[in-house]
């Protein structure tokens, strides 16, 4: 069973077609890059997959559940981190972890254990009782990602997770993503940064609501005769 399967998934807002019959599959443990210019329909597609938005037509299954009829099941099985911070700045690191664990229905013992492991992994034991607002940006993002997969979802959706941070921090963030993927977590990530696109197993590029290209970064570059993903993207976005 593939973690994400869509068929002609479409969302219309009035006469505007935000997402036009997109069809794709994402494999288990894959890092799937979802690229596109602003307004290309990325966010709409992602919101439909997360059960936040009801599709106009087409089908989609996430973690084996239908997004129309089993949105609750979908939500239980996915993690989500948005471009804006998912953490409460006026809560302590520990309190944030406890809150998210709690709303996903984890038991207290479980949360405690996971909190310890998580803080140790991020090397943030000393900051456990600090307010999130006091942390540097890169740490917040790593923490947000760790919190998003606290309840061991089979898929995690990342909506432009690395906006506004320097390349070194971005690289560190991607180490976390790789690690999760190695454990079998499927990663669905939207991004603006083309260097990040290179890190993905496969990449889809959306233009005007449609998926115009979908393959591994290497194949895409070969297909478009391009040096880098940047070139591929520009060729597609400009329209030939």
């Amino acid at each position: 069973m593939q973690p994400i399967v869509t068929n002609a998934l479409t969302k219309k807002f009035g006469s505007f077609i935000a997402t036009n019959a997109i069809t794709f599959e994402v494999k288990q443990g894959e890092i799937f890059g979802f690229l596109g210019a602003n307004g290309a329909g990325k966010t709409t597609a992602m919101r439909m997959l997360c059960g936040l938005l009801r599709p106009s037509s087409g089908t989609a299954k996430v973690a084996g559940y239908d997004v129309y009829t089993q949105a609750d099941k979908v939500k239980q099985n996915i993690g989500y981190m948005s471009q804006r911070f998912s953490l409460y700045e006026d809560l302590k690191v520990k309190e944030n972890i406890r809150f998210y664990g709690g709303i996903y229905g984890l038991r207290n013992g479980e949360i405690k254990e996971k909190t310890e492991r998580l803080l140790q992994k991020l090397g943030m034991e000393a900051e456990a009782d600090q307010l999130v607002s006091a942390l540097p940006l890169g740490w917040k993002q790593k923490l947000a990602f760790s919190v998003a997969i606290l309840h061991d979802p089979s898929i995690v959706f990342l909506d432009e997770p690395t906006g506004g941070v320097d390349p070194v921090t971005r690289r560190q963030f991607w180490d976390l993503i790789y690690e999760a993927a190695n454990r079998g977590v499927t990663v669905f990530v939207t991004t603006h940064y083309m260097d990040e696109a290179e890190y993905c197993d496969r990449v889809s590029i959306m233009v005007d609501g449609r998926i115009q290209a979908l393959d591994t970064p290497r194949q895409l570059k070969a297909q478009f005769g391009a040096e880098s993903m940047d070139d591929v993207f520009l060729q597609l976005a400009r329209g030939k």
Partner: peptide
């Protein structure tokens, strides 16, 4: 405003 509502809505709450 902070974007945390989105996270709450994606959660099973």
């Amino acid at each position: 405003e902070l974007g945390t509502m989105e996270i709450l809505l994606v959660s099973p709450l």
